[in-house]
Write a protein that binds this DNA or RNA. Structure first.
Length: 493
RNA sequence: GGCCCUAUCGACUAAUGGUUAGGUCACCACUCUUUCAAGGUGGUAGUACGGGUUCGAAUCCCGUUAGGGUCACCA
């Protein structure tokens, strides 16, 4: 039988990075086995539905390169792929369960349930079918009449009272649970919608899902699902419960401690392939001798049995390191085009591709993310507004202004083009004037970039061009320097 | 609290009974140097604890501890 797996998010917001990891492992497993990957939208809670979230989900997934063989956006033979469009199916199966005496009607109101919870020991509530209002405590004609009168009801699973359930998880091995710890789960809600448990089991069966790969938080409800499969007489798919993604303090990854939406990382300028690479390594490792893997390699090497059992901390530092490696190895032309988009987002326009390519080449090894270049070296895109005063104090000497003045004149007349020619100009100058490179290069950097850090100074000058370099030097000497001097007289300098 | 899951350097992980417990990120030092990085070289650092089983245990079993998940007409 060919492999069919699914990613089944609920449309309650944005794609969580944990969700992306689940989707990714499903994707890797499907592709590795030449199987199919299905997207199914579990929108059975009308109160939590968020507008546009399906679109968002699909956007984030496709950004990551995760493609589906079936789903609401691509079609398929097992649709509809929105659970909200399959209500009649779930209702039919719920009724079937009632008829075979494996489920029952219950008429308790939310208030009654709340009260029952309040009176039972706080954390230990379990639905007691012999006390509450349902088919066990009502006469048959009473049940009938309540339904005929249109009284709201739910359908609950009749869980056997003392029965041991065993199942095997591909990642965790055999797990044993006694049904005395399993609640009579609501299968069909009073609004006619199914709960996750019913819809999930029914759809996984109807859609021929062979392997269920999902987060560990579902592990405790597997016994309910086993009971359902058995009740229907269906074959149980293979199951793999993935370890959770964690915060730094080892709690379940949450909004409070950082970004959890995939789109946050898109907005920060992480590369899709780098992000996927990083996410894939949270809970699994193909060879352990390195950290950079192409998606093809991930697909080729993926083994569900090799997935770890314990949760993995989502560490942005590692993400940054991986992203930086991708940044360093991607074609410069491609990066230049992308940088253009980031600049435009900030209202900066009209930089030739060749110019941006040079900027990228010069600065990419100094940052972790592509758009970070703009913040790291704004002077590549417009003249500096501020000048680092500490840097000035450290390197400025009484004779410095004269040196820069002279160099400005030389640059204007010789018009150097390459880093090497800029270098020669300065070298010749320091030789003639009996000074040192150090004495010149830092003031030059300050006047041209305003800051104390950056790429090689001569390379930077090459990219900016002699004309721009001269203009900045001139501006600094004429307009900025006098102000700094006035300010410093009060201080001591 | 009940039930379930988990436990290797700070982090991600490798080693599925025999290794000086390996790699990557981070960190530290040195180097390179024109600042900041990157690179190169080296280094610190781990099998939670206690019992078993075994010639031999990170690995198998039991217990303890710690962490997590879950206990809705949410998914």
């Amino acid at each position: 039988m060919s492999v069919r797996v699914r990613f089944a998010p609920s449309p309650t917001g944005f794609l969580h990075v944990g969700g992306l990891r689940t989707a990714l492992y499903n994707y890797l497993f499907a592709r590795h086995n030449n199987g199919k990957l299905i997207l199914r939208i579990e929108d059975t809670d009308r109160t939590r539905y968020v507008e546009n979230s399906v679109e968002n989900l699909i956007n984030s997934l496709s950004w990551a390169g995760i493609t589906f063989d079936e789903g609401p956006h691509v079609g398929g033979n097992y649709g509809p792929y929105f659970q909200s469009q399959r209500l009649d199916i779930y209702q039919k199966y719920a009724k079937e369960l009632i008829e075979s005496n494996l489920a029952y009607y219950a008429f308790d109101t939310p208030e009654e349930l709340e009260q029952a919870r309040a009176t039972s020991s706080y954390h230990n509530f379990k639905y007691n079918r012999y006390i509450m209002r349902n088919q066990f405590t009502l006469k048959e004609y009473e049940t009938k009449r309540l339904i005929e009168n249109g009284t709201q009801y739910v359908i609950r699973l009749k869980v056997p009272e003392n029965y041991t359930i065993k199942f095997t998880d591909i990642i965790r091995g055999e797990i044993v649970v006694n049904t005395r710890d399993v609640d009579d789960q609501v299968l069909l809600k009073s609004d006619g919608y199914p709960t996750y448990h019913l819809a999930n089991v029914v759809d996984d069966h109807l859609m021929n899902i062979t392997h269920i790969i999902r987060g560990e938080e579902w592990l405790p409800s597997v016994p309910k699902h086993i009971l359902l499969y058995n009740a229907f007489g269906w074959e149980i798919p293979a199951m793999a419960h993935l370890p959770l993604l964690l915060n730094k303090d080892k709690t379940k990854l949450s909004k409070r401690q950082g970004d959890v939406a995939v789109e946050d990382y898109i907005a920060k300028g992480y590369f899709a392939d780098a992000f996927v690479n990083f996410i894939a390594l949270l809970g699994w490792n193909p060879t352990a001798d390195r950290e950079i893997y192409s998606i093809e390699e991930l697909i080729e090497k993926f083994r569900l049995e090799k997935v770890n059992k314990s949760g993995a901390i989502f560490d942005v530092v590692k993400l940054d390191a991986i992203n930086a490696k991708y940044l360093y190895s991607k074609p410069v032309a491609e990066l230049a085009r992308e940088l253009q988009k980031w600049l435009e987002q900030k209202g900066l326009h009209h930089y030739p591709d060749e110019y941006l390519a040079k900027v990228v080449q010069l600065l990419r090894e100094r940052v972790k993310r592509l758009p970070e270049i703009i913040d790291f070296a704004p002077y590549m895109f417009f003249p500096p507004n501020d000048y680092d005063l500490k840097y000035f104090e450290k390197h400025w000497k009484p004779e410095t202004a004269e040196h820069l003045q002279n160099l400005l004149r030389i640059i204007k007349t010789t018009n150097p083009v390459f880093a090497q020619t800029f270098h020669e100009v300065v070298s010749n100058y320091i030789e003639q004037h009996n000074t040192k490179l150090k004495e010149i290069i830092h003031p030059l950097r300050l006047a041209i970039t305003g800051v104390s850090f950056g790429a090689g100074m001569f390379e930077t000058m090459e990219v900016l061009g002699a004309e721009e370099v001269a203009a900045r030097l001139e501006h600094f000497l004429q307009n900025i320097l006098p102000k700094i001097r006035i300010n410093n007289e009060n201080n001591k300098f």
